[in-house]
């Protein structure tokens, strides 16, 4: 699954170069220029890819003791 996650991130980087939209002036939904709509979609796609990353590719071996952390400051946030 880690490979899928990093593959998705790489895919986002690749399609970010959407040269096929370069001179397309179509409006999506009648008000959003297509190049803007496509890249807004990339932002949403990035959110999804990172959601998968924190669930399936979380780093291992962190020196982070949750018990110690919990006692640091109860409701600080």
């Amino acid at each position: 699954m880690k490979i899928v996650v990093w593959g998705l991130v790489l895919l986002l980087v690749v399609i970010h170069q959407d040269v096929w939209n370069w001179n397309n002036d179509r409006l999506v939904l009648g008000f959003l220029p297509i190049t803007l709509a496509f890249h807004a979609g990339i932002s949403i796609g990035a959110g999804i890819a990172w959601f998968l990353a924190i669930n399936f590719a979380w780093p291992e071996g962190l020196d982070d003791d949750p018990d110690t952390a919990a006692s640091q400051e109860g409701g600080a946030a």
Binding site: H16, D18, T35, L36, H39, I42, S43, A46
Partner: peptide
Amino acid sequence: GVGVYGMLASSSGIIHSLCFF
């Protein structure tokens, strides 16, 4: 023009979170 979103913002969405992660 609108291309600045792709140049400055959507790329940041991918790379900033990458740096955090």
